[in-house]
Amino acid sequence: MTAYITYFRKSFKKNSAYRTTVWLQIVASLIQVGIQVAVWTALIGIGSVDGIDLDQMITYVILNAAMYAFILTSLYKDVDERLRSGDIAIDILRPARYPLLIMADSLGRAAYRMLFMVVPIVTVSSFLFGFSVPASFSAGTGFVIAIVLSILISYSIGYLIALLSFWFLTTFHFSWAIGALTTLFSGSFLPLWFFPEPWATVAKMLPFQFLGFVPAAAWMGQLTGSELAMTFVVGVLWSAVLLMSTQVLWNRATRQLVVQGG
């Protein structure tokens, strides 16, 4: 356990080294929020569409900007690097389990982003545009559960991309493809409740909704009761499937590494 905590702390520190560029990234995120607020102002204006008004959409936009800390998909960049350089051989030899080390490393980065990027972004945007607290205590609880699922799902997707590069020698194609699916089905721009059929049904069956839509909708009390419970079942199932796939691929990759002698 201490190994993972050390990794977490090291990763947090490593990310602190990039302090110089953090303020530019915060500005970039604020621009993003500002643009989407302007777009929703143009789309909804005064009044509401399907029971959603502008203030609610602003909260949705800010929550999606905050997801930046919890989506770990980009971890494939680190793993990919080590797979290709062969440094991965050293990682396997460590007494700790490599997939968990990667997790600890990603969480360290997430914690850093949470503290130094998400907190300022949310603070400044709520000051500029307004922001609503969770709709109720159960909405807050739902949000926390949704975030845990977001972390698990984005972690396993990022890790799968990395593992595939072991056979395909590049992550370029997979990362673009996954990026496309995320853009489309995460709802980070267009919430799933505005999706026309059959796209809404498709999106609600996929794991990508957890990378944007589900946590925000739970927070806002737009997903409640049995509907929220069903969504969580879908999330748990996807987490299990994705995590098992990473385990299978990881076992194959390590076997191959051992056979090849690193």
Partner: peptide, 11 residues
């Protein structure tokens, strides 16, 4: 690669 990027922007 061309295909992946078309899908990416297509999204």
């Amino acid at each position: 690669g061309v295909f992946a990027q078309i899908v990416g922007y297509g999204a």
